[in-house]
């Protein structure tokens, strides 16, 4: 019996080829994982009449951990995003998005090592929208005390468990005094449990400006859903783009690890897309599963392959295919082990 059973959701577009490359690397690390493949997205809509089949939900519910490739969200149609639905169904309230300098990517920062904790289930993503007249659309921004407290508590605990020193709450409570005010108040309340962590707050517009001027000053950030959505992508840009930006959606009993980039359908089947974001998400997953040694081994090999620059994908100046890059990482792992 495998040590771990993980639901693998390859997703759409370039997702399947990326996830196959990532599976090869993770399996080569020696971790004993049984993968359960499940579907999601637009293809499912055609096949099963839903973006998120019940079978996929049941697999995640059973295994409590999943690795997911990118999916496509239809814009301006009546269909709800499969990603958002997954977060809602499993109450994956914490979107964890770390960004750090990758040695091979030349960036203008001396230091970049931020963990963003985005509240993932409420705010203006509560899907409460109305046309309140034929000239006026309205969206309710829903911020709750327990929803705000638990993301703050989660972030502060993660920071403590991982040796981080500083957690700041990002908000716009100077204008949205009720909603963002409640988010900030809950953060301050949760912070009382962590006197060993330096805590503070920063207004979202100032935070944006500070991030692009001097990202090295930040350690961990806790954000409501909308600001988190925007600033985590900004942070991915600081790092070098979405191609290297991992993510995890975590609840009290379940976690889904996924890249944050899109499915790039125009490149589907060409095996040219960089799988690093899903691979780094997979590394996060291995650490979540307690497989720290394997995670470190993959990460080290990936950095080495990127540093050499010989077998890398087009977005970082190479010509390697997705699977060739994965095989180079596997070779590097094996050489290091020998």
């Amino acid at each position: 019996m495998a040590t771990h059973v993980v639901t693998m959701i390859p997703g759409e577009g370039t997702g399947p080829e990326i996830c196959e490359a990532v599976r090869m690397v993770i399996d080569a690390s020696g971790v004993d994982i049984k993968w359960e493949y499940e579907d999601i997205g637009l293809d499912c809509l055609e096949k099963h009449g839903t973006l998120l089949p019940e079978k996929t939900i049941q697999s995640i519910a059973k295994n409590k951990v999943a690795l997911k490739g990118p999916t496509t969200t239809p814009i301006g149609t009546g269909h709800k995003s499969a990603n958002v639905t997954l977060r809602k169904v499993f109450d994956l309230y914490a979107n964890v998005r770390p960004v750090r300098l990758i040695p091979a990517l030349k960036r203008p920062w001396d230091k970049l090592d931020i963990i963003n904790f985005r509240e993932n289930t409420e705010d203006s993503y509560a899907a409460i929208e109305h046309m309140v007249s034929d000239e006026v659309a309205q969206c309710l921004k829903v911020i709750t005390w327990p929803g705000s407290y638990r993301i703050a508590d989660f972030a502060l605990k993660w920071a403590r468990d991982n040796g981080r020193k500083k957690v700041y709450c990002v908000h716009k409570a100077n204008i949205m005094k009720m909603t963002d005010g409640l988010f900030l108040e809950a953060f301050r309340e949760a912070a009382k449990k962590y006197p060993d962590i330096e805590t503070g707050d920063i207004i979202v517009d100032n935070c944006s400006m500070q991030l692009v001027r001097n990202p090295g000053q930040f350690d961990c950030l806790v954000l409501p859903n909308l600001y988190g959505d925007i600033l985590t992508d900004l942070c991915a840009g600081l790092m070098g783009g979405l191609g290297f930006a991992p993510g995890a959606n975590v609840g009290d009993n379940c976690a889904i690890f996924e890249a944050v980039h899109g499915s790039a359908p125009k490149y589907a089947g060409q095996k040219k897309v960089n799988p690093s974001a899903v691979l780094i998400s997979g590394i996060m997953m291995l650490r979540w599963l307690g497989e720290k040694e394997a995670a470190d081994r993959i990460e080290k090999a990936m950095y080495a392959v990127l540093e050499e620059g010989k077998t890398v994908t087009y977005d970082v100046g190479g010509t390697a295919k997705t699977d060739e890059y994965a095989k180079a990482i596997i070779d590097k792992m094996r050489k290091t082990a020998n």
Binding site: D91, E122, A127, R150
Partner: peptide, 24 residues
């Protein structure tokens, strides 16, 4: 009926779901 934007009736509701005392 939804709570914090998540449908809680009819159909499946995760036992883990955080609900507040305000239902749409």
């Amino acid at each position: 009926i939804s709570n914090r934007g998540t449908k809680v009736w009819p159909g499946f509701v995760s036992p883990d779901l955080l609900m507040v005392n305000w239902y749409r």
